[in-house]
Design a protein around this nucleic acid. Structure first.
Lengths: 132, 132
DNA sequence: TATTGTTATACTCTATAACTATA
DNA sequence: TATAGTTATAGAGTATAACAATA
């Protein structure tokens, strides 16, 4: 299996997700929730569907995730028009987003410390080509 | 998110798993089952726990997977000692393994066609460094 | 008619804890 | 005591189909 890119990709991704999940634990967020929080933070007032499109999450799966973030007091929804909601972070949400950004930076630093600069750039380029 | 290795890894892996799942459909196997089938094929008589160790699958999760492969008539178990089973492929299992190998080769070829030789080698090297 | 979001549901993979049987 | 496997259960992420409300 060592020369199978697909398999190595899967194993590396699984390892990273486990690392990220552990690092995010103090935030109380799961990886997907953390990603959504940061996307909303960077795009205040965005629509739910747009966030899903950006992260590759189907509309049907966005619903319970957003509902939980709202319930936790991190995200607020304002009626944009009759069928869409504008999402933004609450004060609590913004504070947590800053914390999550730090945790995620630590995670990325841990990954990147295993590779030299050239390998990192090459890896990012290759992954982008494989992404879809 | 474009410069986050962890995130790009996750997206690339998800895309690949979807592709692999679709390509394996005619075999009736899921990606994890296909990997196990090929490992047993390459290691006739191996123990269940050894397969799990190799693929990073916990013992508790191996149980239903192997049970299903046995039920499908692809894998047979022989008592090795009182507590371990030696796994091997049935005739049907070997035939399917050959087919699965072809499907997996197609999958890998599709991935690798997006990268040049140097990028591919670099990617495999980097993924190995990140794997654990 | 097309868009936005929702409900309900199922599947795949993974994780932990507690257990049996054997060595 | 340690090993191999098992049972039961939960969680996280993703998928599809059918639907309501709005534009």
């Amino acid at each position: 299996m060592e020369t199978h890119v697909g398999y190595q990709l899967r194993r590396a991704s699984a390892y990273m997700m486990a690392d990220l999940g552990a690092r995010l634990e103090p935030s109380g967020l799961r990886p997907t929730e953390a990603a959504i929080l940061l996307v909303i933070h960077a795009n205040q007032g965005c629509q739910q569907g747009a966030v899903g499109d950006l992260l590759g999450i189907k509309p049907a799966n966005m619903v319970p995730i957003i509902a939980r973030l709202v319930k936790q007091g991190l995200v607020s929804r304002a009626r944009a028009d009759g069928r869409s909601h504008a999402l933004s972070l609450t004060e609590t949400g913004r504070t947590l987003a800053a914390r999550v950004t730090d945790l995620l930076d630590n995670h990325e630093a841990a990954i990147q410390s295993r590779l030299d600069r050239g390998s990192l750039d090459g890896l990012l380029g290759s992954l982008t080509l494989l992404r879809g």
